[in-house]
Nucleic acid binder design. Structure first.
Lengths: 334, 334
DNA sequence: GGTACCGATGCAAGCGCTTGCAGGGCTTTT
DNA sequence: AAAAGCCCTGCAAGCGCTTGCATCGGTACC
């Protein structure tokens, strides 16, 4: 019943059938403008008839372009980066590129091997959301001609291109906002990542100017999970006096704390205000809706691809740091 | 300041430096057992010295193995499949494979082009969570020798290998469970996907045996978003009498409905019970915790890779349908 | 001492494309 | 009418690996 595994058609089969050389068929794919319309039509017919699908391994080897873009993120299970990935994937596929997904894990432990994986496949570019802390690795990447885009942060020492925003500024904006609303006893739930710490530092720095006591800060383990909110809640509930606002490292955490608070009969925001980060879908739809910091993750993805495109077309990139900014969104919870 | 872009070292550079032929270095990578320890040591040193990274495009072309596995999912933003993807990615990287991520979009609209993308890169295997409805495409894939694994469902007409569970059975189990608990007026919020409909059908079929009136069924648009729960709630609140339990197509939806209910002063589960699907992290941590159906998404990923491995080692796969089952988890919400 | 065998390595022919260069036929310019 | 230019296509030399086959030195066995 199974057909004999028919040999996979190759460029030459198409060429023969269309009565042209393989070079012409190759051009039909890679530079259609320069093949005559009549020829193109014959080639199209031949492709159709043979069911030919190009072999991009061979093509990539010959042309030195793999049409692969390595995207390295810490995780996707509960991730704030997923919008970025989706936007990037969509945008890249317009150019015939494909995403090679690498999960670097909490603490980016698997980063080195994933970089090797990307290099060995001769990825056309590498897009990072996690941070490469290792100086050697950073240097190694600089040696290569590969485009490297760091996203979501603003590293002090960029490898190549950066698309992100200042987490320090987020922190200070939130502090200013809460001070303006009259809150006096904030508490901070900070995730263990480098960027979350920058937001914390920005907050602390700014809060100092208010003259109020410095906030209580507690650490939350990575990866961010809904369940951690219970830990936060426990520590919060022990404080006396209770804080009047809790600033969470993520919307997920904020939502969790709100649910715990409500279950304990504490009214949000009257008795306890809550601030999140990320403006995920839940933030707007919670009851009460969550005050948070909006980051346009999709835009980060699009900007990153835009840079790739410009470099691919030979343009020299001058603006190596692209700041997409952020917006504090005041809702009901604070 | 920028070094002249040093040529990327190749196998031959390593070979020369180690005083062996390229064949031996190649074997060092692909079949280390057959190269003499002393030689291996010299090769290792040469690799270290040159900073060589294999070119898998070239290697793949020659060996006809790309070490690329295409993973096609509808979305990742809010997806129940993310655990599966994570497990698969982790498992695959143990074998030196890498995931090519394709997002097929709601309704799997982009499936055809992604299949082409996978074929042109000569992916070693293709793992699907979305469903290919187009018969031509199914047939086209059967023609190829590529391993195709369909996951999360149990298609009537599998392409090759299947790892999943029966959604029909989920539906009837939930119906039986609710009947057993004495509920009499269920309502169903069903997402537009084929699998969600199977669960609905399983429920309806089973519910018929209870003698109670058939449930009200409403459709929820894809992709699943937290905000949809508000729509569900509005429709629910108009019913008279109110249903005594709402069966949601996902935990996200269930959580949203619970939050709306609580905001409206309806007590869960006393006045309205809620059932979800997927056993995501939130389900266990909500207040009240959510009764749901647990699916071991990570296991699906691992089983899929296990099949790949066995086939790669030349084994002929007899058991083409792997049922990972599911568990109804009774918690506080129903 | 001869034969058989085995482990380790080298030789060289591809794998299926891309692309610089060249050339043939037309049209345009002088 | 010749020269110049342009469009389209073909030739063929790679791209950097893998792997079947051959080779070679040694050990085991009779």
């Amino acid at each position: 019943m199974t057909n004999p595994p028919a040999p996979i058609p190759k460029l030459e089969d198409v060429a023969q059938r269309a009565g042209v050389s393989t070079a012409t068929v190759s051009r039909f794919y890679n530079n259609p403008a320069i093949v005559a319309p009549a020829t193109a039509a014959r080639i199209r017919a031949a492709i159709e008839a043979t069911g030919y699908v190009p072999n991009l391994l061979a093509g990539g080897l010959a042309s030195n372009r793999s049409r692969l873009v390595a995207v390295l993120v810490p995780e996707i299970a509960q991730s704030i980066f997923n919008d970025t990935i989706e936007a990037m994937t969509a945008e890249l596929s317009l150019d015939g590129h494909v995403v090679m997904l690498g999960l670097t894990g909490t603490g980016n432990a698997r980063m080195p091997e994933l970089i090797d994986a990307a290099l060995s496949r001769r990825a056309d570019a590498m897009i990072l959301t996690g941070i490469i802390t290792d100086a050697d690795t950073r240097e190694r990447l600089r040696q290569r001609t590969m485009t490297v885009i760091e996203t979501w942060g603003m590293p002090e020492d960029p490898i190549d291109i950066t698309v992100g925003f200042s987490h320090l500024a987020v922190g200070s904006d939130v502090a200013r906002f809460l001070h303006g609303r009259g809150y006096t006893r904030p508490m901070l739930a900070v995730a263990e990542g480098a960027r979350a710490r920058q937001r914390r530092d920005g907050f602390l720095e700014e809060w100092r100017n208010t003259g109020h006591k410095p906030p209580v800060v507690i650490d939350v383990p990575l990866p961010t999970r809904f369940g951690h909110s219970r830990l936060v809640w426990r520590q919060l509930a022990q404080l006396d006096p209770l804080p009047d606002v809790i600033v969470c490292g993520s919307d997920v955490l904020a939502q969790g704390v709100m649910i715990e608070a409500q279950a304990a009969g504490i009214r949000v925001p009257d008795q306890l205000a809550v601030v999140g980060f990320g403006n995920m879908a839940i933030a707007g739809d919670m009851r009460p809706s969550i005050t948070t910091v909006d980051v346009d993750g999709a835009r980060i993805g699009r900007e990153a691809v835009a840079v790739l495109r410009r470099r691919a077309s030979g343009e020299r990139i001058v603006q190596k740091v692209i700041d997409v900014g952020f917006r504090l969104i005041a809702r009901e919870s604070a």
